[in-house]
Nucleic acid binder design. Structure first.
Ligand SMILES: NC(=O)c1ccc[n+]([C@@H]2O[C@H](COP(=O)([O-])OP(=O)(O)OC[C@H]3O[C@@H](n4cnc5c(N)ncnc54)[C@H](O)[C@@H]3O)[C@@H](O)[C@H]2O)c1
Ligand SMILES: NC(=O)c1ccc[n+]([C@@H]2O[C@H](COP(=O)([O-])OP(=O)(O)OC[C@H]3O[C@@H](n4cnc5c(N)ncnc54)[C@H](O)[C@@H]3O)[C@@H](O)[C@H]2O)c1
Lengths: 210, 210
DNA sequence: GAAGTTATGTGAATAATATCACATAACTGT
DNA sequence: ACAGTTATGTGATATTATTCACATAACTTC
């Protein structure tokens, strides 16, 4: 069933499967069934098989999936067999916590640039040695260091302006933590992260059922 | 169209509308159309009207929605007219950044408890004055301070055990930042936050189209 | 107060997503 | 080599979510 159009939901699940497979691999699990993997990922077994079927046949009937193989296949599908360079814009509370986070490295992402406007921060170095540049150097630095994805952790008021600069610099992937909808041309893919939405969802569930 | 069953997606969007309405209110905007609100939130105008229609009629035909009114209605729907008490479990990089974050307070959430296992941290106070308790005090402290929601920012390996303790303490809402699927009884609602999934989604888009 | 304008509320149409159910293929043991 | 077992791959089906399109109601102007 190659080259059907892939549901967006499938892509996000592949990422979840990948993480679980990585854990299984570290626990020396060789083979896993869609049923067991489904339980670990909190989804329906048929869902996993459908998701994978969009890209090929990766399992062995009557047996299951070889953990290492499937992991490799998913990384391939998601484009994670190469390295991706990230730029962090806004080195406040959240931005600093994120660049310190080791997991990104493990998954093939590297911070190769960092930007802020605060004169207290510009010119300083992060714990990992990365120099903080001023935002108005975005275009130059991004091109120079081959940055692929920009992460916005500035206040909401600055997010759109930062996004504009990133797009101008040729970036076409943005992860936005500021709680505003930023406008970008179609060539640029934006993913928004907002935990307060998740908290609100919990509040709703507690109010209606608890 | 009252008491139909509400799509989960509607709830998360209500939260987005709310945030945008809050901004509009601060900018002294009185009335807004579904079309303009839709543009600001990055959705279809009919979507907004449908979402709201699940709960009642909040607009004025030919005019639009009164910003303050609609904001109040949505807060009411989501259960945000009351205060919710949060407990943070795991005061590392991410947990510390989150408790420092002022926005939660603004939205009606208060941190009333904090837990860790690190002897270096237990007994210390957070910048806001909150004492860090040991995790094995969860049950006692949670009940004592009327905590409603637990936030897990421990390493993945500790997440399930923390979740168990939170559930035992009577909590039925958990926001989980650890990249594992935690198992809880049906009475407890879990929301997972994992930004690496969003990053992977961007990587996928860049690899297929860029 | 009637005609014109605007934007809501909503049934119907469409699209996207998830699940079922079973034929199919690979292993196991005799 | 064959029967039994297991778990994949997938068409068919069910469910959920989004968008269209227009009748309806409120405001405005003359
Ligand atoms: N901290 C959290 O836990 C949290 C949670 C949810 C959402 N957010 C969102 O993430 C964003 C950052 O939050 P934070 O707590 O880190 O805020 P913060 O104030 O600690 O950090 C913001 C940083 O952005 C920098 N900055 C301001 N304008 C800039 C610009 N034009 N270009 C580059 N840098 C600029 C500031 O100098 C500062 O270093 C906010 O939009 C916030 O709403 C944060
Ligand atoms: N930091 C990030 O940017 C980031 C991004 C994505 C996901 N995450 C996830 O969030 C979680 C926390 O990340 P972090 O960077 O803050 O890690 P961290 O190591 O800085 O902090 C973890 C904290 O949890 C505490 N802890 C350990 N076991 C505990 C237990 N049983 N009970 C209570 N506390 C316990 C530790 O003492 C430490 O203070 C991890 O699961 C990580 O994968 C973090």
């Amino acid at each position: 069933m190659k080259f059907a159009k892939i549901p967006m939901a499938t892509i996000t699940r592949l990422s979840v499967y990948m993480r679980t497979l990585q854990d299984l691999l570290e626990d020396d699990v060789d083979v896993i069934s869609s049923e067991r993997l489904a339980r670990l990922c909190g989804v329906n077994p048929a869902q996993i098989r459908k998701d994978l079927a969009y890209f090929g046949e990766f399992g062995v009937r009557g047996v299951g999936y070889r953990v290492g193989d499937l992991l490799g296949q998913i990384k391939d599908i998601l484009g994670l067999t190469r390295r991706w360079n990230l730029a962090m814009v806004g080195l406040g509370n959240l931005g600093s916590a994120l660049v310190r986070h080791a997991n990104f490295l493990k998954h093939g992402y590297t911070f190769t640039a960092a930007f802020d406007v605060d004169p207290q921060k510009v010119g300083k170095r992060l714990p990992n040695g990365l120099l903080i540049n001023h935002v108005n150097e975005i275009e130059e630095v991004v091109k120079d260091r081959d940055v692929n994805v920009g992460i916005i952790t500035t206040p909401a008021s600055a997010a759109q302006s930062v996004a504009n600069q990133l797009v101008l610099a040729g970036i076409n992937g943005i992860l936005n933590f500021a709680p505003v909808q930023i406008q970008v041309p179609d060539c640029c893919h934006v993913e928004n992260v907002d935990f307060t939405i998740s908290l609100d969802t919990i509040a709703y569930h507690l109010s209606v059922s608890g």
